[in-house]
């Protein structure tokens, strides 16, 4: 997998969460993910097409997303509900858009679909391509989340 296609999405995650929610994020060590199990409580995945095909997913622990959404909307959320799921979808839209904009500046033209949101313990994420899935864990003051990116041959 071309790392040049991945880094812009990581930079986008950092930029979007800081700009929209005032949340600082600290990236951890990237790793190749072998299974579909989401390491979190709520996720969104968005399909990507263009010069490369694949998908990007965000996976949040409950504590992390509740903190982020409270900062984003200025309202406290005790548990994951429709408002929180909607926010996960919009954050995914924005991060994917910002990442694609960074890639476009390097000559990579990509389009994106509409995010699909999934929540619940032990839910799974099925990426839209058969290629390797790179996962990057992030830490925030609210808790952990993960960015997953996969490019390759579409299913």
């Amino acid at each position: 997998m071309d790392i040049a296609l991945i880094n812009p999405f990581l930079a986008a995650a950092k930029h979007v969460l800081k700009t929209m929610a005032g949340v600082d994020v600290r990236p951890g060590k990237p790793f190749l993910k072998k299974d579909d199990l989401a390491k979190g409580d709520v996720s969104a995945i968005i399909g990507i097409t263009g010069v490369a095909s694949g998908s990007m997913a965000l996976v949040f622990t409950e504590k992390c997303i509740l903190g982020i959404v409270s900062s984003l909307l200025g309202e406290s959320y005790p548990k994951i509900n429709d408002d929180v799921r909607d926010a996960v979808g919009e954050l995914t839209n924005m991060i994917c858009g910002d990442g694609r904009r960074r890639l476009a500046a390097d000559g990579f033209s990509l389009q994106a679909g509409v995010p699909t949101i999934v929540s619940g313990k032990d839910h799974s994420i099925r990426h839209f391509a058969d290629g390797p899935r790179l996962a990057v864990p992030f830490e925030t003051d609210h808790g952990a989340f993960m960015v997953e990116v996969a490019f390759g041959k579409p299913h």
């Binding site: 929209m20 984003l72 909307l73 200025g74 408002d83 909607d86 926010a87 979808g89 919009e90 839209n93």
Partner: peptide
């Protein structure tokens, strides 16, 4: 289409 963004803009 996302209520989150409508809320942010409305604010």
């Amino acid at each position: 289409d996302f209520s989150t963004m409508r809320r942010i803009v409305k604010s």
